[in-house]
Amino acid sequence: MVEVDNATLIAFTVLALLAFVVALIFTGLSVAKKSKLFVNTIGEVSAKYETDITPATYAFGIWNLIFIWQAAWLLYAFGSIWRYADGGPVLMKPDILPIEFYLFWISCCLLYIGWLFLWDREYLFYAFIDLFLLTGCGYAAVAYQSIALNNNMIGLMSKSPVDVTLVYVLVQNGTDLFFSWTTVATLLNLASALANDPLLKRNLSAKSASTISLVILGIMVLSWSLIENTVWFDYFKYVYAWYAVLLWALIAVIVKNYDRTNYNSVFSIVLLCLVVIALVVKVAVYASRIS
């Protein structure tokens, strides 16, 4: 990781907070009926391009929780600038929130704003690419922060033990909540694009497009369960937002689309069971390794 001085990290903390505020403003404009910047609301475009995996409307309320949690960790990081321990801000030297984390997180805010416009204009495939890049940057942000915390755990524990818990709860699970949901949104966007975007030479049926997204999600669940319980255990042992998001999303998909004659409904139920099993395995591995 790049070593920078405290002043640079403080500047990026402020930039991250400002980027979040700008993202909130554009979100508000995107749902406002009288906004001149946007033609449609997010919900209107989603309803126009529904697939077999479009979740029930209530599921999108998770954005409220996401924004609240992002605000919580950003205010915590901003407030930590004035909380000193051992001669410096509590989250700096060692750098618990490294500059790479802030760079990728700010990039996510910019990509999110870009997605709002692409989705509004119904550029479905470009919107998918945007969300894909956003989620990739999000994964990088979470990875850099988790590695920084693990590598500097002893230093932070000696300065302020309570901040270890706060970083786990607010920063790690807060950002993981955000990017777990954008993972779901990326797959929903992919299905809509494959079925409807005229940019593609040949569109798939909504059913086939939905199956592709479900298969990708299944592969991700299995792969992540394997990785986080083995080589990356120390970095992500307290991160559970991924499972909460998947349970929330899959239940909403089943609630809206359940049809026992539709194999995508069956697949969704199988995936829901798989997520529950993966969660149980994570808890069991943690219990066995910590005891």
Rank of each mutant, 00 (worst) to 15 (best):
E3F: 10
F12N: 00
L15V: 11
A19D: 02
A19E: 03
F20H: 14
V21T: 14
V22I: 15
K34E: 03
F38G: 01
I42A: 15
S46V: 03
Y49T: 03
T54A: 09
Y58R: 12
F60N: 04
L65R: 01
L65S: 14
I66R: 00
I66H: 05
W69D: 08
L75N: 06
Y76L: 15
A77W: 12
G79I: 08
S80R: 01
K93D: 13
P94G: 14
D95S: 08
E100A: 10
I106E: 05
I106P: 08
W115M: 07
L116C: 08
L124T: 02
T135M: 07
Q145S: 11
I147A: 15
L149W: 12
L149M: 13
V164H: 06
L166E: 12
Y168R: 06
V169T: 10
Q172C: 00
F179I: 09
S180E: 03
T182N: 10
T183E: 04
N189P: 07
L194F: 12
R202I: 09
L214T: 01
V215A: 10
V215E: 02
L222N: 06
S223E: 13
W224S: 03
F233C: 08
Y235A: 12
A241Y: 04
W242Q: 05
W248T: 00
D259S: 14
N262L: 09
L272S: 05
L272R: 05
A278C: 13
A278K: 01
V283G: 01
